[in-house]
Design a protein around this nucleic acid. Structure first.
Ligand SMILES: [Zn+2]
Ligand SMILES: [Zn+2]
Ligand SMILES: [Zn+2]
Ligand SMILES: [Zn+2]
Lengths: 165, 165
DNA sequence: ATATCTAACGTTATATCATAACAGTCAAGG
DNA sequence: CCTTGACTGTTATGATATAACGTTAGATAT
């Protein structure tokens, strides 16, 4: 991972550091309460780990951190927590990277698009209203009943564009 | 895989059987010639296998078929051929299924969206001009230089909708 | 023709990602 | 109390993917 550190004031395009991680965590907790979800210690800590991370984390990276902190040491521990978060809209799975990232907007119902930088592996969650609308139209035209979608773009983030200019 | 056979005249939503597989293969060969690609025996046979398949195939499924026909028996044989096809626009990788499918329109430059049926695992390649345009706009707005994208929708194909109605 | 080069092939071995199945814990409700 | 069900942790295994290396065969250059 060719990372560009956090000297620029933010580390990975749109992840502005732990500052708003707090805010997002608070939103996520509100969501959990409102919807009667059980945000247990492993689950909550998993979400924090994702929020603290630069970029998306693989399940085994999450697992190692959880294990160090006294949680279980085996893969299902991480996968279960991550799947719970994904199923409940508190995190997203980035299939191209086999990785997970905290949702940046856990309060809203949204179908997001992810901008994945080929230079530094940063992942930005972009609002994708227009994209999902277009996709819904395409599905409709094909007689396909759309449930949900994965939209992942690969390219260069602003920082990496400048670096390679 | 809950398949619905080929009794209805077509087997998997938009894969109308071996009839137009021939046409697609011819297009793919024309592409290869035009662009100076080496469509070697393994690669060509891999493409045929994808075209003959109902739905997307995993790399190990392709491998088994190749092995039976006297090609190599080890994973890299399949992965190399599949990656070649994907990189050259003759096939697509379906990340949600860890699988590959022949491109339905190998002659055109296109960024496709895939409609994946949750009922029967069929995969339909839908034209996605509108979707990519919207995505390009979203990327632009984020200062992200888009190279390519993965767009995968999950839902129910027409057949499975009727079956569950 | 023959030496050289290189892309493609096939192999062994290993890395990486993910889930099945089962046992122990614990809080909620009868 | 005792059952029930959700959650956690474990062992074991399965599924997907790549690294590295030797070989082959077509293309190029002497
Ligand atoms: Zn989100
Ligand atoms: Zn970058
Ligand atoms: Zn295509
Ligand atoms: Zn279907």
């Amino acid at each position: 991972m060719t990372n560009h550190g956090s000297a620029a004031g933010f580390c990975c395009a749109d992840h502005s550091g732990a500052a708003n991680a707090q805010a997002i965590l608070a939103q996520a907790e509100a969501q959990a309460r409102a919807r009667g979800l059980r945000l247990t210690p492993v689950r909550r800590r998993t979400l924090e780990i994702l929020l603290e991370a630069h970029g998306a984390l693989g399940a085994y990276e999450v697992l190692e951190l959880l294990a160090r902190e006294g949680f279980g040491t085996q893969p299902p521990v991480a996968y279960r927590a991550l799947n719970f978060l994904v199923e409940n809209g508190l995190a997203h799975r980035i299939r191209r990277l086999n990785a997970f990232t905290a949702c940046a907007h856990p309060s809203e119902e949204h179908s997001a698009a992810f901008l994945i930088c080929a230079g530094c592996d940063s992942v930005t969650e972009a609002p994708a209203r227009g994209v999902s609308d277009a996709l819904a139209a395409a599905a409709e035209a094909a007689g396909f009943a759309l449930e949900r979608a994965t939209i992942e773009a690969v390219g260069l983030c602003r920082i990496c564009q400048e670096a390679s200019a």
